[in-house]
Design a protein around this nucleic acid. Sequence first.
DNA 1: ATAGGGTCCGTACCATGGTACGGAGTCAAG
DNA 2: CTTGACTCCGTACCATGGTACGGACCCTAT
Lengths: 142, 142
Amino acid sequence: MISGAMTIARLAAAAGVGVETVRYYQRRGLLAVPASGGAVRRYGAADVRQLRFIRSAQAAGFTLDEIGELLALDATHDRPRVLALATLRLAALDSKIAELTEARAALARLASSCAGGAAGPCPIIEAFDPPATPSRAAGTPE
Amino acid sequence: MISGAMTIARLAAAAGVGVETVRYYQRRGLLAVPASGGAVRRYGAADVRQLRFIRSAQAAGFTLDEIGELLALDATHDRPRVLALATLRLAALDSKIAELTEARAALARLASSCAGGAAGPCPIIEAFDPPATPSRAAGTPE
DNA sequence: ATAGGGTCCGTACCATGGTACGGAGTCAAG
DNA sequence: CTTGACTCCGTACCATGGTACGGACCCTAT
């Protein structure tokens, strides 16, 4: 096997993470510890792929626990479960994107109103939360 | 004063947070502690507004420290600084949205490829990270 | 006036995702 | 064969944003 010649530092660099992070993932069971060899572990392309997968999945909003489940499922070939997780995450991603988009719009409004008027105190609090319930507040928390 | 009749529990409920969270924000200096009265504090509409602002700003991705700065700035009327923070956050929000959108697309591809083929092991790792470097992997870390 | 629920307060704990440290062992080049 | 870089390992620590707990006190209705 030609591809199994990396030390942990090279593996980490190949995936753009720190050595400590690799070790952390091993502790969490997300990355196999190559039991082969005696003293210093050697890693291969498969490890790089798995490490990159972990980072991608993280970027998609999966927690490390969920990623662990995904990896276990990948071994098990349990498609329905993978699909279910993916679908859930997709929905979560959609609502998160919507939320951020909304927040972005609100923030942009704030910025332009702040940049526009020259005199006032640029009331960011009101900009974010218009005085909907002036005196009889405490309407509906959710 | 009609609007200053809330206890901490009412205030928290009005903003949709827990009592402990309110106290936590007070400790962080994000929410004023009404020094008035002797024993039990009373809160008003302004507190509700500020609390809601904190949550909105949080939703926009500001950290509590940044929110603290925003609040201080709101008092100071330091527009340029507010604008600078808002602009930074806007950019961060944009890149976060882009990242999530990309992740969403990748995840959707995974889901459909997993749902499509009926036989294989639904290789999620490869789905997220296409085999760019099949055999001679681990070439150049940077 | 007394019971009960709410408040105040400090301190401790939680989850998440790492990062840092120190000592011992290992490995490869000079 | 020595030196210096790297690895391994456990344990401790960090930041963020809360949540929980327990005792003391207060406040209000009955």
